[in-house]
């Protein structure tokens, strides 16, 4: 009897949590509609306006040092990361609080990923990989706040993230293995006549890595946000019938929540895979 009642209580709490998540998504979606539908009296929707980089404190020109909305939202990501990883772990408790537990989960998740995918000798690079993961994750999630700006939707940002990984991994590969790193491109399991051809293909695919690495992230975030805004624009343009696109926005918003986490995960695990190639180039 007692266990049964606690079980039902637990499922109720779980149900409540799910309920709260759904309600949050719905509220955010409606805010999205309100934020972007406002001011559109016709079907002139500008889904890409949300990605514009503009100075925070007036002015037209964007110098390299100008504080822009990109600065603001990257700064908010830093603040959120600091809040979780520093403030959240302030107690240093053996039995962790909720926030400390989340910080430890994130830490353990990425650390285990680095160790499992790239091996124990990749652990010195764990702080940077964790940095990139948290930056992408928090930038993605903060970008889901209506009227926010999404830094990770810009290829300028993702290309730098991907190039940093690409260049570091290449340098690490040559420093750790010397010329042996080139064996990554020499498929020793293939028949000898095929190997030069395969080597060319391997080199090309290696060099294309930063492109796919960066465009995947920027593309996914940009496409999702653009679609959200298109639907929100419909809602504004259709008048009373605009209630229909709202449900579309709710659905896509839920999908975007998943995409935000999955893209951060994909970027990180690809980083680990590339690092594995650099540390252990032999197939």
């Amino acid at each position: 009897m007692a266990t049964e009642s606690t079980n039902t209580a637990a499922t109720e709490t779980k149900g409540n949590g799910k309920m709260i998540a759904y309600v949050l998504i719905a509220v955010a979606a409606v805010l999205f509609v309100l934020a972007y539908a406002d001011g559109y009296d016709s079907l002139s929707i500008h889904p890409m306006d949300q990605f514009e980089v503009s100075p925070l404190f007036g002015g037209d020109t964007v110098h390299w040092y100008t504080p822009t909305n990109a600065t603001l939202w990257m700064g908010l990501a830093i603040a959120a990361i600091a809040a979780l990883m520093v403030m959240g772990t302030k107690g240093r408790a053996v039995i962790p609080s909720r926030s400390q537990s989340m910080a430890e989960l994130a830490y353990g998740f990425i650390r285990k990923m680095v160790e499992d995918v790239a091996g124990k000798d990749a652990l010195p690079y764990f702080p940077y990989i964790f940095t990139a993961f948290l930056f992408i994750l928090f930038a993605n999630f903060l970008a889901l706040i209506p009227t926010s700006f999404s830094p990770t939707s810009h290829i300028a940002v993702t290309v730098i993230l991907a190039l940093t990984v690409f260049l570091s991994v290449t340098v690490i590969g040559f420093v750790k293995n010397g010329a042996g790193f080139l064996s990554l491109f020499w498929v020793s399991s293939a028949p000898l006549p095929l190997r030069p051809i395969l080597a060319v293909i391997e080199v090309i695919s290696y060099c294309v890595r930063p492109v796919s690495h960066s465009v995947r992230l920027a593309g996914a975030v940009m496409a999702g946000h653009a679609v959200l805004k298109v639907f929100a624009g419909f809602a504004g343009a259709l008048g009373l019938a605009g209630i229909a696109p709202v449900f579309g926005v709710i659905a896509i918003y839920g999908l975007e929540v998943l995409v935000a986490a999955i893209q951060a995960y994909v970027f990180t695990i690809l980083t680990c895979v590339y690092l594995k190639d650099a540390l252990h180039p032999h197939h």
């Binding site: 390299w64 990257m74 300028a156």
Partner: peptide
Amino acid sequence: PNQIFWLVVAL
């Protein structure tokens, strides 16, 4: 340049 600068600062 602006985005890259602030990204590097953030990272």
